[in-house]
Write a protein that binds this DNA or RNA. Structure first.
Length: 763
DNA sequence: TTGTGCTGCTTTTTT
DNA sequence: AGCAGCACAA
């Protein structure tokens, strides 16, 4: 037997070796799924299947990268590099760029993130003169996204009776019009959102039989990871692609399907048997990750779901500790406890901070932990929330780069036409956009013929636009003759971004400048990593499709803070599942919807199964939400876990006590007494809180009778150029920020800054 | 045309 | 509680 096959258990090995037809691998949590997938691809290569004819679709880029790294140790590196392996989005973006002509796009189309896409939808809602309250962008965008994921294009959307009935019932009959215009605009701008990448792949294959045939022939073997989280659009793509060779292998776990909110269909995995009747089924049920207690607890929970593929996950690992369930008075005490527990356990067990993860349902919950960890000197890294590339200062630079490559990108133009400030105001931009829309061309086309607008724009505006046009043209030229790093540096110089930013000495400004610096460093690092194609197009593609997990700073020893969704596929020695309360987990939107409760339950299952040795489940009686404390009770999910695997600890009166009334966990309590500093744990009142109080204090303290600088006093009657006659009723602040509240006869009370407002004393 | 304070919205999860 | 987008003041 080949050496790599010996490293697998029997079920794993059988799954790897079966390459004669379709197969479904049901892989329980921690059952070595990644290993099986990795080895299967290696096996295929060793069986003589050319690596470039293997299509392997993963859920994140990171997963693909890690598998490739592992494969390199098992087989030839060149072979690994010629695999078609990556996320659905990145693989099909690649194919769409090659075949772009067939769908009427330039190969340089831009991939837009959700923020930008929503911005465009917002503008369209405004343009159609629809009420933004009746059409909240989030809801509208979701509706469009769902339509795309089910391959419903605008012309179908507006004629589909069922869809129209739904929109009418929701009192949003005009979503069809929004969708249609959004679709048209994206195409005109040569922009695709995430859903478009899959939708246009389907359109490409539907309308071009010879292109479909080319890829059907090419991909002799198709593998799909995390199959339970594929949507209809993805399902159809792989079904079509594998219909010639009939060699498809999907891997997944129905118990870990957690993405239905973005269109994932658990039915894809449940119905695989119908789609590929001659399939072989492999079940990986032995868990190598967690203790018996953890595996059993997870099993007892997931049993409560109705819709599942029968399987029993078991482990031969040690029994381990019971799961510690703990209740707190509020979210702050919860965070404090977690901080202490991490310190104690890391000392007692000699674990690194990397071994710990805090998993929560929603991103906002990270805040309490951030504060507490910072104050207690626990290093942490947060995944999710605002990623680096979402920051405004980075998006500005990226918008320039986008425009250099795709001149149709109106969104990019609007973002940077007046950044840094160059005197092109909204009025001018609006006019350009109007002309573009009414002639159905993109804004850049209008900019290139700006002289023709001499009737509606003044000469100054035209001159400024021409300067902007020249700047972009010069940079475009530059982009063709220099590498990415050089281009970005030139860009920062020539656009004056560098100069403008370095002038800003405020803490925020300095931070922004640092971020830009980091961006340049990142470009540098990225370029040096590329063997070829270190061009800016590839760079943009990579950052557009980057995930949070992809930015993992592996080398640093920090506690991980992330949502459970982000934790999918990861494992940690110690996991804290926090905020496990009704209304938070399950979320208040799900509590009355059985199908969603099942999904939330699967999500909790994912959380539990991330842990290897110790698992803590915590919940608080009240939690700060929407700026207010809200009462909450223990989640139903905690009650659903078989009590045999739980240790319920009573509420602690004194939060300094930790583990003390728990025999199993007390070993941590004894050893670490001295290593745990007391002082920083004292809850100092947040400086942030003071800020809002400050506002009131200012008014009280700095109010004065007379302003020495101008000689104005309360009670004086003054004249203002615009507002006319009025009486000073208050003076506050010191020069140069002295403010006066003046009660004008005609206009009422106004707040005026004395350094600007020229008040003359009457009388 | 540019800068600032206020209102109102957000909270599910993300490629 | 925090932020983004919008309305006013110079």
């Amino acid at each position: 037997m080949q050496k790599y096959l010996e490293e697998l258990n029997e079920n794993q090995r059988n799954a790897v070796k079966y390459i004669d037809g379709p197969s479904l691998i049901i892989a329980g949590a921690g059952s070595g799924k990644t290993r099986v997938l990795t080895y299967k691809i290696v096996h295929l290569i060793k069986q003589g299947i050319e690596p470039w004819s293997i299509l392997a679709l993963t859920f994140t880029n990171k997963a693909a990268r890690e598998m490739k790294e592992r494969m390199v140790t098992l087989t030839d590196e060149a072979a690994v590099n010629s695999l078609w392996m990556g996320t659905f989005h990145s693989i099909f973006a690649r194919i769409l760029r090659i075949e772009s002509a067939a769908i009427g796009f330039p190969s340089t189309f831009t991939i837009s993130d959700t923020d930008d896409s929503k911005k465009l939808v917002t503008e369209i809602i405004k343009e159609l003169k629809l009420d933004p309250n009746q059409y909240p962008v989030g809801d509208v965008y979701k509706r469009i996204s769902m339509a795309k994921n089910n391959l419903v294009i605008p012309s179908v959307y507006e004629t589909d009776i069922e869809i129209q009935k739904q929109d009418l019932a929701a009192k949003r009959p005009d979503i069809a019009r929004i969708y249609n215009l959004y679709f048209v605009r994206c195409k005109r701008s040569a922009v695709m959102d995430f859903d478009d990448l899959l939708l246009y792949t389907n359109i490409l294959f539907r309308d071009n039989a010879e292109i479909l045939k080319k890829y059907q022939d090419k991909f002799r073997f198709v593998l799909v990871d995390e199959y339970q989280d594929t949507n209809y659009s993805q399902y159809l793509i792989i079904k079509k692609l594998s219909s010639v060779h009939h060699k498809i292998c999907v891997v997944g776990d129905d118990s870990q399907s957690i993405y239905s909110f973005r269109g994932a269909k658990i039915e894809n995995i449940l119905n695989f048997k119908n789609d590929f009747k001659d399939y072989e089924l492999f079940k990986l049920e032995q868990n190598y990750r967690s203790t018996k207690h953890i595996v059993n607890a997870a099993n007892s929970l997931i049993e409560k779901n109705r819709n599942r593929i029968p399987k029993v996950v078991f482990t031969e690992n040690e029994e381990g500790e019971k799961i510690l369930v703990k209740e707190f008075e509020d979210d702050k005490l919860e965070a404090l406890y977690v901080a202490k527990a991490i310190k104690k356990i890391s000392t007692a067990e000699n674990f690194k901070f990397n071994d710990f993860a805090i998993l929560y349902r929603t991103n906002v919950q990270s805040r309490a932990f951030e504060d507490t960890f910072r104050r207690n000197g626990i290093p942490y890294k947060i995944f999710g929330s605002i990623s680096f590339y979402q920051r405004a200062e980075i998006k500005d630079i990226v918008a320039y780069l986008r425009l250099l490559i795709n001149k149709n990108d109106d969104l990019a133009i609007k973002r940077i036409i007046n950044y840094p400030k160059r005197g092109i105001g909204t009025t001018t931009v609006d006019k350009i956009e109007e002309v573009a829309n009414s002639n159905n061309v993109c804004m850049w086309d209008v900019i290139c013929q700006i002289e023709k607008l001499n009737k509606i724009l003044n000469t100054r505006a035209i001159l400024l636009i021409k300067q902007f046009q020249k700047l972009i043209n010069d940079l475009t030229l530059k982009s063709k003759e220099s590498d990415a790093v050089e281009l970005v540096n030139t860009l920062l110089e020539k656009t004056d971004i560098k100069a403008t930013m370095s002038e800003d000495k405020s803490p925020e400004g300095v931070n922004k400048y640092d971020n830009v610096q980091e961006f340049v460093n990142y470009v540098q690092e990225w370029s040096s990593r590329q063997e070829e194609n270190a061009n800016i197009e590839n760079f943009l593609e990579e950052i557009a499709l980057a995930t949070d997990q992809d930015n993992d700073k592996k080398d640093t020893d920090r506690v991980s803070l992330m949502t459970i969704h982000a934790a999918k596929g990861l494992e940690f020695k110690v996991v804290f599942a926090v905020g496990v309360e009704e209304g938070t987990f399950p979320g208040f939107r799900s509590v009355n919807i059985p199908a969603e409760i099942e999904e939330e339950r699967r999500l909790f299952y994912v959380a539990i199964t991330r842990s290897e040795k110790y698992l803590f489940i915590t919940h608080a009686k009240r939690r700060m939400k929407w700026g207010q404390y809200q009462q909450a009770s223990k989640s139903r999910f905690i009650k659903e876990i078989d009590n045999r695997y739980l240790f319920n600890e009573t509420i602690e009166e004194n939060s300094e006590q930790i583990f003390d009334n728990n025999k199993e966990y007390s070993k941590f309590a004894l050893k670490s007494q001295s290593s745990f500093p007391k002082e920083p744990l004292i809850d100092v009142s947040k400086p942030k809180k003071l800020k809002s109080i400050d506002k009131f204090l200012k008014i009280d303290k700095k109010v004065k009778q007379t302003d020495e600088q101008t000689g104005l006093s309360i009670g004086m009657i003054v004249n203002h150029v615009k507002f006319g006659k009025g009486k000073i009723i208050q003076l506050e602040g010191d020069y140069p920020d002295t403010k006066a509240i003046v009660d004008f006869e005609k206009e009422g009370q106004k707040n005026l800054l004395l350094k600007f407002a020229k008040l003359t004393v009457i009388d």
